[in-house]
């Protein structure tokens, strides 16, 4: 289920193998990393020349080369983080699926929550004001609509209440006709 963990384990094992037997089998290649291992990393990277296409589903020759590059780096025992760093160094930050948190990119992550929390605050404050106004007995001349569907204080307290509730709906519908 968890490809990421799987990949980490595999990469770890490869690293371990690389550390243990570097001299003994100089000529023997590491087992070639499988397509799945390559794709697990490729799907987190974006094609540097096409717009908004993840590397694992990109059909161009260039992307094929990049996937082979990932395979080669995996075979060399590079970790996912190292591969990503290499890609960013060579092809720019746009290969990442999210902007790295540096410089102006902070705005990317800060602005939406700030705006949203601002909205929450405004709404909360408005609620407070409205509540006060609601309790205010000095009712304005132009309180439009007393609730059409009136308050349902007994809602949910048994079927009798529901009857009342449906009756009100019916009544309202009759009025509308």
């Amino acid at each position: 289920m968890n490809i990421k963990n799987f990949t980490i384990v595999i990469v770890y094992l490869l690293l371990l193998a690389a550390a243990l037997v570097p001299v003994v089998v100089v000529s023997a290649q590491q087992p070639t990393p499988s397509d799945d291992q390559v794709n697990a990393i490729a799907r987190k990277l974006y094609c540097p020349v096409c717009e908004n296409t993840p590397l694992d589903v990109c059909p161009t020759t260039a992307c094929h080369q990049w996937r082979e590059l990932i395979r080669q780096m995996l075979a060399e025992g590079k970790t996912e983080a190292e591969i990503k760093r290499y890609f960013v160094d060579y092809y720019g930050a746009r290969v990442l699926s999210e902007p790295p948190v540096t410089g102006i990119n902070w705005l990317m992550y800060i602005v939406p929550p700030v705006l949203f929390l601002g909205g929450v605050y405004l709404l909360f404050r408005a609620f407070q004001t409205w509540k006060r106004l609601g309790k205010d007995p000095v009712s304005g001349a132009d309180k439009p609509a007393k609730p059409v569907v009136g308050p349902e204080p007994t809602i949910g307290s048994g079927l009798a209440a529901s009857d009342e509730y449906v009756a009100r709906i019916e009544e309202e519908l009759e009025k509308r006709k």
Binding site: P48, V49, Q65, E68, L69, D89, Y90, Y91, G92, A93
Partner: peptide, 30 residues
């Protein structure tokens, strides 16, 4: 935006001898 080994193979194949380097982070092309 190229891959190292293929780039080297290309330069060998066409015997390119003037200074060459990767466009790191696509900064130059931008």
């Amino acid at each position: 935006v190229d891959t190292g080994p293929e780039a080297h193979a290309y330069m060998t194949e066409f015997n390119v001898n003037y200074p060459n380097g990767p466009d790191m982070g696509t900064r130059i092309s931008q």
